[in-house]
Each structure stands twice: as C-alpha cells, then as structure tokens.
Design a protein around this nucleic acid. Structure first.
Lengths: 331, 331
DNA sequence: CTGAAAGCGCTTACAG
DNA sequence: CTGAAAGCGCTTACAG
C-alpha cells in the first residue's frame, strides 16, 4: 500500500542505497542520478517510514514531554512554546501525564525503555525527581521546565523568582503600602522560598516588616479562604502579594465580599500572568513569568543536546516582569 | 546498551520466537517455560523497542492529535481527556499544531505518510477540512472533535449547540428578559448557526423577537468593542447571549465601563464554561460544553476503530448544560 | 510446545 | 559514483 524505498529504487532503476543517499543528501551521488531519483520520489509521493528510519538509525527524532496536568492555566503557553520549537526542528512531540500515581509513572518509564523518544522535557510532577534523576543517569537527555527550586543534576530553565518577589515589593512600596500580606505557595517549593526571600529583602531595605506570611496551596479557593479568615481575625494589611494568579483571584474575591476595595483599600499582586489576569475585575497586576519562552528555551536546549552538543547544567534563568494593571497601580 | 529480545532469549535459553510468544501472551507456550522467560524479562528489565515492534507489526500504537492552538482556554480540558484515555489504553500521543500555515500543513501530512501514528484526533484548524478528508479517504482513521458544523464524512463528536442556544434563551426568558442581544461567533461555523437557531426558536415560541444579532470573532476585545459601539448608538438590550465565554468577558467589561450593572441592567450568558468563568466579576452564567468528555469520547472512538471495530460516522453529540452563576441569575 | 528463517523498511560499512 | 549485503529489534508463517 504505502510506497517504500524499494518501490522508488525500482522505479528509478537504482539501488535502495542510492535512494537512501539522495534522501540523506550524503553527496557522493551523481547529480543527474540524484535528480532522477528526486523526481521519482516526488512523483510517487514517497516519505520514509519514521519507524524504519528510527530502527536503522537508533533514534526516533521524537521528543517526550511529561507534565503533571494539562489544565493548569499556564500550561498551554509552555506547551505552545515547546511544540513550535520542536516542530520547527522536524521532531515529533510525544505527550505524557502522570496524574494517576505509581501506575502512570511505571507506564511512563517503560516508554523510556522502549526508546519511544530521544530526550525528555518535563514540568515536574511532584515526587518524580528521583525517577527523573535515574533516567538522566541512565543516559536519557532531560531538560526540566520550572525547576521548583530543587536544583536537579540535569539542565533546567526557570524564571527569576527572587527578583520577581523583589519587584512586587518595590511596586507596592512605591505605592505607599506598608503592611503587606504574603500568601505563598507550598513551602517545599524552592521557587516559593525565593519569591518570599526577594520580597522580604526589598521590604527590609525600606524598613518595612513582613510579618504576615501565610502558606497557601496555589488554589483560588485557598486564597479566598485565607483572606476571609485573616479579616475575621481582625488582621490588617494594605497589600497582598500572592505567589500565583489563581490564589490572587481568590484573594480579590474575598476582599470584595468583605466590602473592601481593590486597590483603594488593599492592593493585590499575583505571579505568573495567566491568560485570565487582564480580565479579572479589577484587572490583576502580576509578576509575569515568560512561560512560552521557557518552553521554547527548554526545547531548544534539548534539541541542541540531541544534536550532540553540550548544554549548560546550571539552571537557565529567564527574566520575570512586573505587569502593572488596576489591582495594584504604579506608585 | 539497551537489552534486546535476543539477550533475553539467550539468558533464558530459548529462541526469540518463544520470548515473543510470552510477551504477546499467545498461549501455546509451556507454563514453566513461560514462567522462566518472564523471570528473565523482569530481572533484566527488558522492554520491547516500540519502533521495532511497530515496524514488524505495521502499526505504531500511537495516536496523533492535531490542534489549531494550545492556548485556547478550553484546549487543556480536551487534551487532558484525550491523554487520559489514550494512556489508559497504552497508546502514545503525538501532538501537532498547524499555526504556521501551509508549511506546517505539509509537514504534518508528511508525518502521516511516515506512518508515525495509526489514527488521528483533530480539533479542526481552519481550512484543513479538505486535507483531513483526503487523509481519511486514503485510509487514515480520523475523529473530529467539535465539528464546527461542517459535517465531515468521518466520525466526529460535538455538543448540542442548538439545544444549548435554546437553554440560554429559556434561562433569560424565565428571568423576564425581553430584549436580547446575540453576539455570535463567525457565521461560517455551523456551531454558531446552530446556537443562534436554537436561541431564536425558543424566543420565537415565547413571542420574543431576536432583532439584535451581531457577528463577532470569539475574542474578548471584539465583545468589548461591539457592546461599546451598540451602546454608543443608543441600542437597547436587557440581556446578552455571547457565543463563547471570552467574548462574554469582553461584553461584561464594556457594560461596566458604561456604568451598567450586570445582571441588574443587563444579564450576560456565555458559552463553553472555560476555567475562568466562575472567577469573573460577576461570575459568568454560561452554557457548558463538556470539553473533557468530548476529548475522552473522541479518543475512545478512535481506539475502538483502531481495534478493528466499526464506529458511527454520524456525529456523536454530547449534552450541553446551562450553568447558572451571577451574571444571569435563574428567573 | 518450540525454533529457524524470512520479512517489516530503512541505513551503513564494505567492496568495487 | 554505485550496489550487494548485513544489521537495527521485533513478529509471524511454516515446519517439526
């Protein structure tokens, strides 16, 4: 049914070897022969079987991507960056998730052994660092996107979390805020610790204490609940720095429910700049992480590595950017 | 490096044929032999090379998925549904986008000829229906997600667009609204025509005219602009039925800017129920499309087809659901 | 129940 | 510059 290299060779009156040579532009082929073969290839619409090529060459020209979830607000951006880069290099992208615990992890690692892909891009699902480290040690090229401050022994790309926290602080201080609440993500994440440290350092430089720090879990529900609880307890604050936008949305909801105005009474800054951020009411000021660029960068690094070159094992750090919208105006 | 079937055969003292038999549980193998082989397989951590198996068997146990964009608000849900289903069946998922015009389409079709995947799931990128039809005619199993009313000659899964429009109308009418504005999507989409027809029919049954219909382009910016323009022109309406949530968000923004209250002055209903919908201000009432279920269903259909069974070529239609939130309260 | 051999569709030394 | 042959790692008649 599908046309094979043998069909082409036969039709062109040459050997499969020769067809293979013009396919892979190995030179060392007579110009007129090459032209004839190429003509036949086009006429017959021949495309080499990727499986056969992979088997013969020992690689798949395919990149794997492992993510914890596809429904996180910023995952689409990362994926788009990855796909664009990978497709442009004529590689395929095999997508995996790991949301059913041990079973899916096992299934995934067996795909690795099956040599279904040459290298792996990963937004780290929780509790998979050991597995990833093992795969990397066994020789699988791996690039991590958004290292959660775990500082793995393989290449990764992150954003400037410390500086991001610092820029949020500068923004709020310039607006005259002096009593900030910080709603962090899970403290086990390095990125969370960095964001908090950056925020603290800058406030410290300005003589402003950061006394109100609550550990959250990155969800809208949690942001809403924390603020409601704090307000009920009579705690006072004139600004909130939430460690992600989803939680910031919850924060704004709770403030509104309590009859407080954003930003007049309380300014709110998030982190990420998810697609929803410009559309909240009021629109959300936030520290932007360049998710698409992070995906692109990670993909490019992996492709470079697959091309045989060395890539830095130290984290590649992309700049965050303070985006000013209405929930926290410039001072 | 990687352990092959030959290594296993050697270590177990049997032929590759026998190893292959226990791998594929073909029966016809002595129980004790099988046990011994299995033991060796586990000990050596052997996993068959997917490429080699594919070449020998003539299939790849991989499904392709083609989407126009990965950053659309509901795409993550569809993808998650697809990935979950495909992974559970032990298939791989190869992801493709088509956002660079002809070049990417060419690249994509050549992947098809390369036999990189056995079947295709597609959220139709514009202007690719002819290509998809051609692929399907050449024997590639294809299932379309969210047929845009194009009614292709291959299987597809959609939602009840007509009924969805009708339910939006019922909801608004029950709340006493009598002067609706409909902000549609591009009229070339069948789903748009169906939503409008359903809305019209129901309004008609209640003696309410639908005189204000504007064709939009599904973006937030457009929703905002249309409403601003209509208001400036002095047009009056007490409800808006937007054909997608993003546009509805723009509509609410423009109403707020004009000093109108939602829902007191104007009720707003969207379509889709994107993740943002519960978090807008006010939260958005909308006609929910079960995107994840649509992804799951399409994937299941394709897998069934790949297993050799027949699947319906008539569209599979999943129910929409009217979700009541604050932007359009129940009457 | 088991194995030798051919075949899947390519690539790549090797020889000419 | 070109081709015959071996090999990539499997599966599958075919024979015993």
């Amino acid at each position: 049914m599908a046309v094979t290299i043998a069909d082409v060779a036969h039709a062109a009156g040459v050997s499969k070897t020769t067809v293979s040579r013009v396919l892979n532009t190995r030179g060392e082929v007579d110009a007129s022969t090459a032209a004839r073969v190429r003509e036949v290839i086009n006429r017959m619409g021949y495309v080499p079987s990727s499986g056969a090529v992979g088997l013969a060459r020992g690689n798949s020209r395919t990149v794997g991507m492992l993510v914890p979830s596809l429904t996180w607000p910023w995952m689409g951006e990362v994926l788009q960056g990855v796909v664009d880069t990978v497709e442009a290099a004529d590689f395929g992208l095999l997508l995996f998730t790991c949301n059913r615990g041990t079973e899916s992890v096992t299934r995934f690692t067996s795909q690795v052994s099956a040599r279904a892909f040459d290298g792996l891009l990963v937004v780290e699902p929780e509790n998979t660092l050991d597995m990833l480290t093992a795969l990397h040690r066994e020789g699988l090229p791996v690039v991590l996107i958004d290292d959660r401050g775990h500082h793995p022994e393989f290449p990764s790309v992150t954003a400037t979390n410390f500086e991001g926290g610092a820029s949020a602080a500068r923004h709020l201080l310039a607006d005259g805020r002096r009593k900030p609440l910080v709603l962090t993500g899970p403290a086990r994440f390095g990125c969370v610790r960095d964001r908090l440290a950056g925020f603290r350092a800058t406030c410290g430089e300005h003589g402003v204490g950061v006394d109100l720090v609550v550990e959250g879990d990155f969800t809208e529900t949690d942001g809403r609940r924390v603020v409601r609880r704090l307000l009920a307890a009579g705690r006072e604050f004139d600004a909130v720095f939430a460690h992600n936008d989803l939680a910031a949305v919850g924060v704004m909801g709770a403030l509104r429910d309590a009859g407080l105005r954003v930003p007049e009474d309380v300014a709110v800054i998030g982190f990420d700049d998810i697609p929803m951020a410009p559309h909240t009411e009021p629109s959300l000021s936030t520290v932007r992480q360049p998710m698409r660029e992070m995906g692109e960068t990670a993909a490019r690094m992996l492709l470079t590595r697959l091309a045989g070159e060395e890539i830095p094992t130290a984290p590649v750090v992309l700049p965050t950017e303070m985006i000013t919208r209405r929930s926290a105006p410039a001072g």
